[in-house]
Amino acid sequence: MSIIALLISISLTIAVIFLGVFLWSMKSGQYDDTYTPSVRMLFDSEVKRGVDKETSAKQEPKK
């Protein structure tokens, strides 16, 4: 039966680690804004530079 004591101590340790990680992420403000990051990751990292009016004008008729 002593194996149970061992298993429980392991499971409890892991659970405490997860709790700690949650508390840390909470404190570091990761849950403060749950919307912006989801949008931010979809933005192009570099703003399109070469898109001037001529190319966009050319592209449009193709549609």
């Binding site: 403060d32 804004d33 919307y35 912006t36 949008v39 931010r40 933005f43 703003v47």
Partner: peptide, 23 residues
């Protein structure tokens, strides 16, 4: 969000900008 996070493109003096949409 996109525009406000690209503020640095408008003025070189801005290093970085981050939006908190909820607030």
């Amino acid at each position: 969000i996109w525009l406000l996070e690209n503020l640095s493109k408008l003025n070189r003096g801005v290093v970085d900008s981050k939006v908190n949409f909820a607030k």
